[in-house]
């Protein structure tokens, strides 16, 4: 406050300029790689290759395609398994770390949890393909015990949502554990102390105090994870290439690529499908934000 009052107008202007300079780089990139492509996709979705307006025509082509419902159902099954696992384990492990592990051990475990996330998506998929191949896997005896003796049996359609969930979970959950740990850490010691004095057990402390207080972080995680999950592409695509018997349009994003570059190349339909996915993600976010009161300022008090 005091510095702002003592600044002369010219100085204030200069510091504003510096602010603009700082955000300029980001703004340029955001426009080039965020806003423009989205606008382009929206324009494509409502036109044909001659830029003639087609209304919802491309959307109808996309959603009435014989592969559309199946790929949405696949994605849905994947999201249910993956989001549930992510919420339960990210919150659960963060609480365990915060409440029961101290000092260096805590640092060590946070590092271990985060480690798989350092692998890029493709590399982690390759790791899992190796792990799940009954011929090459270090856990081959376990796979054989389940009755999986070759890769074809592993990648049966009913197993795929679970497999992709495991792959995505393994890469993604570590980062979320760290973030949730930070959120739990932020809860004031006074609150914790008060609860303990009132006789709350560790379990009650977690359930009645800590989890409600990081609820908004969980919602934030769900929104981002859901948006990421609808973009599922690399895992099914690599598994298709490797196994030759996984549906090449398993996820909606793969279907969009097929629309754009497949047998009948039609980027406009692909754009329409991308817009559908965007809308689905936005709707999910709106519902969560409304129901959790995430941006409700009073709720924070």
């Amino acid at each position: 406050m005091t510095t702002a009052q003592t600044l002369r107008p010219a100085q204030r202007e200069r510091s504003n300029k510096a602010g603009y300079l700082f955000v300029a780089g980001y703004t340029v990139l955001l426009i080039a790689f965020g806003v423009l492509p989205t606008t382009y996709a929206l324009a494509l979705a409502f036109t044909n290759d001659q830029w003639q307006f087609t209304g919802f025509g491309q959307f109808i082509v996309a959603v009435t395609d014989y592969r559309f419902l199946q790929s949405m159902a696949n994605m849905g099954a994947f999201l249910v398994i993956w989001l549930t696992a992510t919420v339960v384990f990210a919150v659960g492990l963060a609480l365990v770390l915060r409440n029961f592990v101290r000092g260096r051990a805590s640092v060590f475990w946070r590092f271990i949890f985060y480690l798989p996330g350092a692998l890029a998506g493709v590399a982690s998929t390759l790791v899992w393909m190796f792990m799940l191949s009954p011929q090459a896997s270090p856990i081959a005896p376990l796979l054989h015990a389940i009755g999986w003796t070759d890769f074809g049996q592993v990648v049966q359609p009913q197993n795929l949502p679970g497999i992709f969930a495991v792959m995505a979970f393994w890469v993604g959950v570590g980062g979320w554990i760290i973030i949730m740990y930070g959120a739990v850490n932020n809860i004031s010691d006074d609150v914790m102390e008060a609860a303990r004095l009132d006789g709350a057990s560790s379990w009650q402390l977690a359930w009645y105090v800590q989890i409600p207080m990081i609820r908004q972080w969980v919602v934030y995680m769900l929104i981002l994870a859901f948006a990421g999950g609808t973009q599922l592409y690399v895992e099914p695509q690599l598994l298709f290439v490797a196994s030759k018997q996984v549906d090449p349009t398993w996820s909606p994003n793969q279907l969009a690529v097929q629309f754009a570059f497949g047998a009948t190349s039609n980027p406009n339909v692909a754009a329409a499908l991308s817009v559908v996915l965007l809308v689905v993600g936005l709707m999910f976010a709106v519902v969560l934000v409304k129901r959790s009161g995430m941006f409700n300022v009073e709720a924070e008090d």
């Binding site: 044909n48 290759d49 087609t54 025509g57 190349s265």
Partner: peptide, 8 residues
């Protein structure tokens, strides 16, 4: 959507 053909 009855505006223009959707096909390329």
């Amino acid at each position: 959507s009855a505006c223009a053909s959707v096909a390329p």
